[in-house]
Design a protein around this nucleic acid. Structure first.
Length: 519
DNA sequence: TTAGGGTTAG
């Protein structure tokens, strides 16, 4: 071009930035600054900054972002709402929350997008409560939220399982949003699923007139997590029939639906035909899912073979999955080998010790279990404490193991003792192989009695009308004994119980669980 | 004819 104006440069920078080619966008920015008569303007920086947020690989991203920020200040554009919003999200993408706040506090704008950026910045940085507070502040400024804001809020409510809050935000959105938006609706669907309400998730999906690939992916994932593999397959067929093309995530979610249900044959069939039928090359995650599926179903040898044959190097989380399966199936030999390798690679990862300890505990080899425990203690390695929580009215009630901190703790323990009596009469037998203490049988039984998920149930049963569904969350995987107790709880109380652990959902009803005891 | 914020996986 004979003459390049600022518009020319801006358009070109934006093109590279959006394509994820950050360094070329930056190089163009430098060229632009060298041309006489042309200066970066309020269009230049949003394009450039979004490119930095998008591509964080290589180079010192923190310094890079700060350098561009300096250019913004030099250009006198730091009060511009467009530039400000993109600065916010750039810093949020690099995890620099303090810088995010500084930029926000420095802006004297009531621009809705700046608020929206601030809320999602908090979400990105895992500051969910701060995000909610920012939402309230925004409402106080009489700013009407748009779809973007609701998407972020739904994601928060889902990840924290705040069903009541989620319903309120949903109602709020119905008042303020008239036109449907795919991303917001997809976030809503996932919120209901994450809160344990698969029926509500279905309702959102079915009433959504803008359905895209992500809608299908989200719904297929939800169905898998809630143990409805057949419906996931049906939806997959419907998706293809509607003309939408499945992507990597679609197939990963479908595989994981098979995995959750223990449908190894179906899972393998899908995995082996991915490339030929769907035209999608398996990624590391597809392999990881299949290896998990094989190992969990007891095909440990086959899973080890797949690890060796796959075109990727197995990372430690995948080895941990197989180690967990060895514990479940009592394959001590393979388990030991994997554990040794993991100890070498990650001497301070508590899960590795706990899993090996579980292998010994399940085999009743309490001396070895105790050895591992004291080794952890000596080395100052500590696993995550287990806790469970339940929403009741406007409050969340949280319980640890043997926790007596709740204001009505005594009543809760009394109710739990009563419940334990009823379920024992109904046939429940404590499964002490899940106890990790090397003491006598009675002590082991006692150590299981006040697990956090049992306390949370005893509280929920006490605090809600009989017949109400109870939704309980746990930060770790549900323990086998509690799983068994929950089945009996649903039987003797007549309640439906939805338990979300860190892996999936369990729906208990009339003495059975939707996972059919496979998890 | 150039600009900012959101959604799904492990």
């Amino acid at each position: 071009m004979a003459r390049r104006s600022a518009v020319t440069w801006n358009a070109l920078i934006k093109g590279y930035a959006q394509a994820g080619r950050r360094d070329e966008a930056l190089a163009l920015f430098r060229c632009m600054r060298r041309q006489d008569g042309v200066a970066p303007d309020k269009y230049t920086f949003p394009a450039l900054l979004s490119g930095i947020g998008r591509n964080r690989s290589g180079g010192c991203v923190q310094e890079l972002g700060a350098a561009v920020h300096a250019q913004v200040v030099k250009s006198g554009l730091d009060k511009d709402p467009f530039v400000g919003a993109s600065l916010l999200s750039m810093y949020a993408a690099t995890g620099a929350l303090e810088d995010v706040k500084a930029v926000f506090d420095d802006m004297d704008t009531l621009d809705p997008v700046v608020w929206s950026s601030m809320i999602s910045a908090y979400v990105n940085c895992k500051e969910e409560e701060a995000a909610l507070l920012t939402f309230y502040k925004m409402l106080c400024q009489d700013i009407t939220p748009r779809q973007f804001v609701y998407s972020s809020l739904f994601a928060i409510c889902g990840s924290m399982s705040m069903l009541e809050m989620g319903r309120q935000v949903h109602a709020h959105s119905l008042k303020n949003i008239t036109d449907n938006d795919a991303a917001m609706t997809n976030a809503l669907l996932t919120m209901y699923s994450d809160c344990g309400c698969i029926d509500d998730a279905w309702r959102v999906f079915d009433s959504n007139d803008i359905v895209d690939v992500i809608s299908y992916n989200s719904m297929i994932l939800a169905l898998g997590q809630h143990a409805h593999p057949k419906e996931a397959v049906e939806l997959f067929k419907r998706m293809k029939f509607s003309g939408l093309i499945p992507d990597e995530v679609t197939l990963l979610n479908l595989l994981s639906a098979f995995n959750h249900a223990g449908l190894v044959h179906e899972g393998l069939h899908l995995f082996n035909s991915m490339l030929d039928i769907e035209g999608i090359k398996p990624t590391y995650q597809h392999y990881a899912c299949v290896i998990d599926m094989l190992a969990r179903s007891g095909e440990i040898e086959e899973s080890m073979k797949t690890i060796k044959e796959m075109p990727f190097e197995a990372e430690t989380p995948l080895w941990r999955i197989v180690l967990g399966a060895c514990s479940k199936h009592g394959d001590i030999e393979t388990g030991m080998k994997i554990a040794e390798m993991l100890f070498e690679k990650e001497p301070y990862e508590p899960t590795n010790y706990i899993l090996l300890g579980n292998i010994y505990a399940r085999l009743g080899r309490w001396t070895e279990t105790e050895n591992i425990r004291s080794l952890m203690e000596k080395s100052g390695i500590d696993g995550d404490d287990a806790f469970s929580w339940i929403e009741m009215g406007q409050r969340t009630h949280r319980f640890g193991v043997d926790d007596r901190a709740h204001p009505i703790s005594e009543e809760i323990y009394r109710n739990l003792d009563r419940l334990m009596g009823s379920i024992k009469a109904a046939g429940y037998v404590p499964d002490t192989s899940f106890a990790t203490h090397s003491t006598g049988k009675n002590r082991r039984e006692e150590s299981l009695r006040y697990h956090c998920e049992k306390l949370a149930f005893a509280f929920g049963d006490l605090a809600s009308p009989s017949g109400d569904t109870l939704r309980i969350m746990k930060n770790l995987r549900v323990c086998g004994d509690c799983h068994s107790a929950y089945k009996y709880f649903s039987l003797v109380t007549g309640r439906k119980i939805v338990l979300r652990d860190n892996h999936r959902f369990h729906h208990f009803y009339k003495g059975a669980c939707s996972c059919r005891d496979y998890w």
